[in-house]
Design a binder for these strands. Structure first.
Lengths: 75, 75
DNA sequence: ATGTGACTCATAGTCCGTG
DNA sequence: TCACGGACTATGAGTCACA
């Protein structure tokens, strides 16, 4: 799949994940554990370096205590 | 990445895409063209057979004339 | 107009480290 | 606590012929 819109969706998504994680005062390790994803992968996601798929998105939303709609409203 | 929650996110997502496409009276071919994805790939997505990632999600949302938030509010 | 199996190739996602 | 790299495996992206 090709890249880029104006501000890359991957970066916007990652930014929102990080902002919400900090809002909850969680470390990356804690969120990764909650969401059941790899710690380094979460780091990549937050930096906009990964094109996350539905299943992981759902898990992250759960770890962040947000519905999918709430999460993407922030994106 | 592992599979399955109660109702699989892939199926729920696909169902919403299809419902919205029909709301717009579009064929799969038309939506696929709008969104810049392959028709058979879209078919797979609607049937919940694909674990779609951010970049494709964004394109589908565009083709469906919905923001990401609006799209996921329906999921 | 759509569903499906089969396929290639790129990348999603894991796990080990380091400063 | 995190960014980043290397190396790996599983799966997503993208296409086709045919039903």
């Amino acid at each position: 799949m090709k890249r880029r819109g104006k501000a890359d969706i991957r970066e916007r998504f990652g930014f929102v994940v990080r902002a919400r994680r900090e809002e909850l005062s969680l470390t990356q390790e804690e969120l990764a554990a909650r969401a059941g994803v790899n710690r380094t992968y979460l780091s990549d996601c937050e930096r906009g370096a990964r094109n996350v798929s539905l299943i992981v998105i759902e898990r992250l939303a759960g770890g962040l205590e947000l519905s999918l709609g709430e999460l993407f409203n922030r994106v």
